[in-house]
Design a protein around this nucleic acid. Structure first.
Length: 424
RNA sequence: GGAGGGGUGGCAGAGCGGUUGAAUGCACCGGUCUUGAAAACCGGCGAGGGUGAAAGCCCUUCGAGAGUUCGAAUCUCUCCCCCUCCGCCA
């Protein structure tokens, strides 16, 4: 959520910034609604004050034994007009809140303008894609040849965009999770957390998946309005919802492995083959909750932590600064990491690292206490995949494939697989 | 699932329907005392919003929502959460 005060004082500037995200800010509409809201608010408060004052004097009169009947008569009509005002205010307020919750975050100055991924800016590249002296197979062919990756059976069990893994591939998939968690805990200073995989509406409003992107989520049947998490970002970031964190505990750095569930509505026909785009996938997520002045540096740091995983696995990648049009609605700046996929002869997203500045914190009322002012102030939130497990598995299968159909186990992973050097 | 008990400020814990935004204690901050610290004493100390240059003033907030009332932390209803016992269960 943007700062409502800025929306009032600096709307032009916000509108200009939001253009980068192809969002048209209806300044006149918002202003009209806001001034109506404020009008009603002030009128309501006036009436409430009158009621309070009168009620108090009735109390005093009664205490001193006076006749309160005439005082009661004076107050008779007050209740009705107050009631009407409150009702009108509640309606306008709800409309205003909803509007506010649907405005995207403003991108930072450094975010390039652009419509889609073609306008993203490459920041750096690491590693050199391997050249193959045989015909490269994609991960589906490799996995199915090993009889360790089975999409047809997953379709039978559930439907499209699911997978069944077996034996060495299933084990490598699990090893990746352990490896990444350990790296972030032991070398990058994160605290591991385990969280619910279902969350309520408030949590999704907090991180910004709702109210705008309900169609991307799986909502559960039942009395409670629960949703499967689309990313660990939701439960982990919401750990600090409605809390005031003491300054000395900041920054908070959490790493969390969870499955992620996404409906992938609107991506029909995209990446239909293989494990690239699934309704259910595992991810190790990095979340940082930091002081405002730390967030820009924290994004670089967090991205570096995700990159380190790719480097340790010796997977070639590039880092991309996303253009306004390709960014998520909630982010202020996003750096994507793209891993080389030989079968597609291109780099594909494997991690997305973003700073949200105070956008999520304002929605969540997530604050820290500034010792200088003694006042609670909004913190900044960041997160990034470190990394998406399924896509990392895909990258390893494809980049480490051998002519005989086997796959070399990356050195960094072997201690997590009982020394196994090769999947066959 | 059945039976009970509870949700009040950072924590603990009072609160006859009417100066209760809320006693008291702890914690915290400032001061006195002290070489320094502790103790003791004095003072301050929730959050959100509106208005204002500021001081301040005003509104909201005692799990959430609805209701009764001139007036609700206090009464009624619904829901949520926590605790204890029984049953079931990984």
């Amino acid at each position: 959520m943007l700062d409502p005060k800025l929306l009032r004082s600096d709307a032009q500037k916000l509108a200009e910034a939001l253009k980068k995200k192809n969002f048209v800010l209806d300044i006149d509409g918002i202003n009209a609604l806001d001034s109506r809201r404020r009008e009603l608010l002030q009128e309501t408060e006036k009436l409430q004050n009158e009621r309070n004052v009168r009620s108090k004097s009735i109390g005093q009169a009664k205490a001193s034994g006076q006749d309160i009947a005439p005082l009661l008569a004076e107050v008779a009509s007050l209740g009705d007009s107050l009631e009407q005002n409150k009702k009108a205010l509640a309606e306008v307020q709800a409309e205003f809140d909803d509007l506010l919750m649907r405005i995207p975050n403003t991108p930072q100055e450094c975010v390039p303008a652009g419509r889609d991924e073609h306008d993203n800016v490459e920041l750096r590249r690491w590693g050199t894609p391997r050249s193959f002296d045989f015909e490269v197979q994609d991960h589906v062919a490799i996995g199915e040849a090993m009889e360790a990756m089975d999409f047809a059976t997953a379709t039978k069990l559930t439907g499209s965009r699911f997978v069944v893994m077996k034996a060495g591939i299933a084990r490598m998939h699990r090893a990746l999770i352990q490896f990444m968690l350990d790296q972030h805990i032991e070398s990058h200073g994160y605290t591991e957390v385990y969280v619910p995989y279902m969350v309520n509406r408030d949590s999704l409003l907090g991180t910004g998946q709702l109210p705008k992107f309900a169609e991307d989520l799986f909502r559960l049947e039942g009395e409670s309005e629960y949703y499967l998490i689309p990313t660990a970002e939701v439960p982990v970031t919401n750990l600090v919802r409605d809390t005031i964190v003491p300054a000395e505990q900041m920054p908070l750095k959490y790493v969390c492995h969870t499955p992620c569930f996404r409906s992938e509505a609107g991506s029909y026909g995209r990446d239909t083959r293989g494990m690239i785009r699934q309704h259910q996938f595992e991810k190790v997520e990095l979340v940082q909750l930091v002081l405002p002045e730390q967030s820009d540096a924290a994004l670089e740091e967090l991205t570096g932590h995700a990159e380190k995983i790719l480097q340790l696995l010796e997977l070639p990648y590039r880092a991309m600064l996303l253009c306004g049009g390709d960014m998520g609605a909630n982010a202020a700046r996003t750096i994507d990491l793209e891993v080389w996929l030989p079968s597609q002869n291109c780099y594909r997203e494997i991690s997305s690292c973003s700073t949200f500045e105070d956008f999520q914190a304002r929605r969540m009322q997530a604050r820290w206490r500034n010792p200088e002012t003694g006042k609670p102030e909004l913190m900044h939130t960041l997160n990034g995949s470190g990394l998406a497990i399924g896509r990392t598995l895909v990258a390893i299968l494809e980049n480490y494939q051998n002519a005989d159909g086997s796959v070399t186990v990356p050195a960094a992973l072997r201690s997590y697989m009982n020394g196994l050097e090769r999947l066959v």
